[in-house]
Write a protein that binds this DNA or RNA. Sequence first.
DNA 1: TCTGTTGTTGACATCGTTGGCACTGCGGTG
DNA 2: CACCGCAGTGCCAACGATGTCAACAACAGA
Lengths: 345, 345
Amino acid sequence: MTLDAPDATARPSRATLRDVAQLAEVSIKTASRVLSGQPNVREETARRVRDAARALRFRPNRLARDLRSGAVSTAVGFVIGDLSNPFYTQIAAGAERLLREHGLELFIATSDEDPERERRVTLTMLERRVRALFVVPVAEEHAYLVPEQQLGTPMVFIDRPAVDVAADSIVLDNRRAVREATERLIALGHRRIGLVADRTQVWTARERVAGFADAMRAAGTEDWQRWVHRAHDVATARAVASDLLAGPDAPTALFALNNRITAGVVNAVAGLPGPPAILGFDDFEFAATLGISVIAHDPVDLGRRAAETALDRLAGRTGMPQQIVLPTRFVARGSGERPPPKAGP
Amino acid sequence: MTLDAPDATARPSRATLRDVAQLAEVSIKTASRVLSGQPNVREETARRVRDAARALRFRPNRLARDLRSGAVSTAVGFVIGDLSNPFYTQIAAGAERLLREHGLELFIATSDEDPERERRVTLTMLERRVRALFVVPVAEEHAYLVPEQQLGTPMVFIDRPAVDVAADSIVLDNRRAVREATERLIALGHRRIGLVADRTQVWTARERVAGFADAMRAAGTEDWQRWVHRAHDVATARAVASDLLAGPDAPTALFALNNRITAGVVNAVAGLPGPPAILGFDDFEFAATLGISVIAHDPVDLGRRAAETALDRLAGRTGMPQQIVLPTRFVARGSGERPPPKAGP
DNA sequence: TCTGTTGTTGACATCGTTGGCACTGCGGTG
DNA sequence: CACCGCAGTGCCAACGATGTCAACAACAGA
């Protein structure tokens, strides 16, 4: 009993192909052939190998496999902003479903809506040699992805387009959707419309505010900027809405530009007598129950289309990056159809 | 200018450590030392290497690194049932936050609530040599994980305990929570309590129904079984609730045993005159706005505790698997405090 | 001058797998 | 009988990184 015998100590180690080959009394290569389904192995030999693998509970090391065989990993990376926002996770769910049908696995990591973290997790994904990459970007700067893309990793940007890298993207028709919804409010007689938008850094927020501006200007309201307010999370949105309604010259309608803001606004308004009109961007589970009118779209479809695009590229499609614009639809449920109070100054 | 110079053809390939070393005119090993921050390299040499790496846009290949250095990957696997259920994603968000602080990255894959798929994605995670593994299990059978666990990969089961593998788990005090909530309904005078529970296969559903049975039996209701109904998604839950309320001997209270079922029930009841009392398991964003009383708990904390447990194991804690039971709290918001109608048979 | 120490560097083996190629029998062909 | 094709198998290199160890220079102390 020597002191340095490593196998004597209680340190079981994972069975490798070598162990399987040894037990089956074949070469490593033959074992590999059997276990990865290559032809030209006698059935009896194959059986021996399979038995050995089972006995040793052999699990191939994907790291080694993927390393050896270049970029044929089955992992696809998905970088989203925040796991607790259903908007992101539904996109992921949509992409996942389609990818799975093609034998690919979706791995999700979060950027926490921080550009620097987005960059880090994205690069980590690439270091792991994912087969394709999906990003719902927060950062404005993606030049660092250019070389990676040239190396052949398909990349698809979701919900927000790629700026300084020529990649495919799937977006919503934000500007038009908000313009048209704002026009509806104006047609109902609203002029004091409180818009609650996400941070300016976010592309969708900018687009949506632009749509609002389009409609307001068309209606002759040049000081539309004073009606634009900012919030990024539910609590802030709630506070902003409460303040607006309590303040002088309170808006007769509130327009919340994403799901979290809508949650805050709905919360603030709940139970108020003579509530303002309310519109939200993004549909949500309780919108029907609460009677909230929204600009609806299908995040699952957003993800599905992104997956389609990536699969196309993997199948060999080349050429200019595509930008797919998905439609939205207005769903009237009551809250957005309330006219402003009759008596006014 | 030879014909076979590979660099002459338009085949850009990813720069490796070798390329960097060549350009910097050092050995591969020295380049490795510089780029992975090992000591004992002359500053001038180090600078040359860093410059070369930058010029070639070198990105290390994690596959190779992780392969060589054994199981020291920074990836942690998380297997959840469904990306579009906030319950799961919030758990993931909680775990992610803590893991990140320890330099670990969370990779999420979904089982689609299918035991066979759960098994497959779990094994894939292990084949990728994750440092630790989290599972919100659907399957009842996890014996296949035993050898992997013995090899040292910490595993934590979340929301539902591990059955045939001795792993740590974090669960809620389901049975007690439901028993006590049911007792409240009984104290209010309810006897006809319609319970809408998830499938029997799901451990939490069984526990929660057991809690209901405890309370009903204690109150002398031996035929509690006839009040138990099943639903797995929002639509079914809604239909079940509608049927119950329309049928003869309609319940005076509805108790929904998870977030999706609650959504369906709330939907079905919305706007009804003289609505039944409603209780839900799992809190949700609009519960306050809608005045729905719930058994609340913190999924984010569930994830955080799971991460803590795994980190402990990684830090070397040995010994028996722990089962951590997290408390729930009852949040009264009105819907659960409605007494049954006075006039009765 | 010899020996020991310290810092810097590179040659080589290695992780677990797959690809390329060569080798062995064996039956069929000219 | 030399030759070919072909199924079945094994040896060796390779993927891209890191670990081990030794070589070497510079310098201090005896």
